[in-house]
Amino acid sequence: MELAILAQQTLNGLILGATYGLIAIGYTMVYGIIGMINFAHGEIYMVSAYVTAIFLAVLHYFGLANVPLMLLAVLLATMFVTALYGWFLERIAYRPLRGSTRLAPLITAIGLSLILQNYVRLSQGARSQGIPSLLQGSFAITLGNDERLVQITYVQTLIIIVAFLSMAILTVIMHHTSLGRACRATEQDRIMASLLGIDTDRIIATVFVIGAAMAAIAGVLVTLNYGSFDFHIGFVTGIKAFTAAVLGGIGSLPGAMLGGLVLGLSESFFSGFVNADYKDVFAFSLLVLVLIFRPSGFLGHPQVVKV
């Protein structure tokens, strides 16, 4: 039935879009604060999938059987380790280039991306890896006449809850804490922020840490959902999340989330109703169309040249 397909594809789109949105946050926040596209961010997401598997194996080895507790521990530990990667990249690769030409950090980012991929390939092997599925089962939402409307697995439910909850928490942090205020001030005028006593280098590092932690949430959730991954997954997902960030208006935090959802939903509808093989073509065509009519994305601000 058409309605059932529509509902199912909406759900799939929301799940896909939420993960794009989580990863897009890293692109958009880094761009907002230092005006650079961190093309190594997709690899950070890839690393987090491996970290997830490693922590699951470690916890399993120590005999932790309680699934919810295990998931929570893996989520937090993966966020922490992945955030360290983000912090480390900024510290060794980007900070020394601050104040150089705009192209230098961009090329560095591409180089880092290759280094991370090969580091994972060498240390973990080139073959696809997998984890056993931990959460099995699903809900079915039915219509009044017992007709099935949507099928939603426990893992998908978890993805939706965790993704939206973490976006909400991040939004609250950015708008209602002094750390968030300092981040936004640094983003708007880095020199003025430092004149006021804000350690802007620390704030920039914090933004990398937040971006990596959000990508790690996506990494844990997607890994739980699909079960398999390889050293190459960061590339396409990274490009998609970057597209989401541009679509929503790069530099804008709600824009990244919105862009992720729009991209996820449109991919999902296109696969469901038109042709699954061309979903990427459709996604990027959408980007082109939006950029023609709204060059700064849905929620972005037009570039104002500062004098």
Binding site: I191, S194, L195, L196, G197, I198, D199, T200
Partner: peptide, 8 residues
């Protein structure tokens, strides 16, 4: 001194 250490 670094810039952010001046205003304090």
């Amino acid at each position: 001194l670094p810039t952010h250490r001046i205003s304090p």
